[in-house]
Computed example of a mutant assay.
Amino acid sequence: MKPTSSDPGQPAGHAALSGVDRKLVDLLKTDGRMSYADLGVAVDLSGDAIRERLKRLESAGVVSIIGSVSPRVLGYSTFALVAIRVQGPARAIAERIAAVPAADLVVCVAGPYDIIAQIVCRDDSALLSVLDEEIRSVPGVQIAEVFTFLTVDKYSAGFDAETTGPRQKAAPSLDEADHALIRTLQKDGRATFRNLEQASGLSYSSTRRRVQALLDSGVVRIVTVENPLTTSSRVQAGIGLTVSGPVEKVRAALREIPEVEVAISTAGSFDLMLEVTCSDKAVLGELTGERLRRIDGVQSSRTFQYLELVKLPFTWAGLEEATFGGPARP
């Protein structure tokens, strides 16, 4: 049953989280695998009550707790944002693109485009194949404008720029048991060690050691992804900037703006692509209409407000399964 605003402790679409839920989400952002008992102590509830409350938050789409693995660990080095204009209903096309293994973030937007998708591939040739075979060939897609990543200048919503960007170090060696653990954690970052043991085929003690090694090395991070579009008046948007003169001065200024969670230098019609989260539309208007325009070197901007997150980022689950858990991609 979907939660309603009259049901205490349960989130409703575009309704503020309760104080307990807000604290619970914040705790999980600090440690996504914190035990139900410890969470209960922190908010003065039983472990069973926390289990049910978290289940409701997840089923309502407010949070997802997943094991996030850098695509470079899986051998992927080409990143791109694809801005798509469609004819006809956008949601159905967005859902089809979300099923593409190379697609991470997929969102319906307002503005000059209808859908934004983040695509991750092994190389530029693979990116072209995805664009031609799995995006441009979709009925209803009229335009797919591509912005390939040059540098990731700010990435405060998940992996940092050192992990996600082009300069990340070579991936460590992983075996089939490691990949089985990764796949399970990608689907459920709070999977029990018993479930992980069954998935990997290792002993219980070996499973615990392997999981801890994956977490300690940074190969996998347990990330609590909050969907800001489901609660309160917060808004997210993508912003494309064109810059005159050196881009570095603009990058430095963007790093100091708290609402800018992601800043990427791109090849394409925009020099920089941003993802921002604002407390409400008025703050988004002030950010785009005043603060960004005051940055020396910013020549113009275009904003596309997020309407619906069709596929949340940070899991890379499709890539992992396509590489190790299913049929090989051409």
Rank of each mutant, 00 (worst) to 15 (best):
F147T: 13
K169A: 15
Q10L: 08
D123C: 13
G318D: 04
V120K: 00
S244C: 12
Q10D: 08
S203P: 05
M1F: 01
Q305P: 06
R221V: 15
P166V: 03
G61K: 05
Q118T: 12
R33P: 11
K249R: 14
L287G: 10
L312P: 10
E176C: 15
L174E: 06
M1E: 07
T303A: 01
R136K: 05
L131M: 14
P139L: 11
D188N: 14
A213H: 00
A103I: 13
A191K: 15
K187S: 08
K154N: 09
G165M: 03
L81V: 13
V130H: 04
L241H: 05
S18A: 08
R302Q: 15
V100G: 09
K23F: 04
A110R: 03
T207P: 03
L214R: 06
E95N: 00
A126T: 07
E290R: 05
M1V: 07
A144N: 04
L45T: 14
D44C: 11
S173P: 00
V62C: 00
V220C: 06
S279G: 08
V130D: 06
A37D: 13
I93W: 08
S203T: 02
S35C: 09
A263V: 07
P139M: 01
R190M: 04
E261M: 11
V243P: 04
R56D: 01
A322W: 09
K154Q: 12
T323E: 10
T151H: 13
V141P: 00
R51D: 06
V86M: 01
T163D: 11
P71Q: 09
V63P: 11
L174A: 01
T4E: 00
Y155M: 11
Q87M: 08
S35I: 14
K23C: 07
V43S: 07
G47F: 02
K23R: 09
K249T: 15
V69T: 06
V283N: 12
G67K: 02
L274A: 14
E321D: 06
D31M: 14
P246N: 10
E275F: 14
G238L: 12
P258L: 14
P71C: 12
Q87S: 06
G245H: 14
L81P: 02
V152F: 01
G40I: 01
V20G: 01
L150Q: 02
Y306P: 02
S206G: 11
T30R: 03
T266I: 15
V106E: 04
D31R: 14
V223M: 12
L181A: 05
Y36F: 14
G318Y: 09
E321L: 15
R91M: 14
S18M: 05
V82M: 03
D31Y: 09
Y306W: 11
A282K: 08
A171T: 09
R329E: 15
R22Y: 15
Y36E: 13
G32Y: 13
F314S: 11
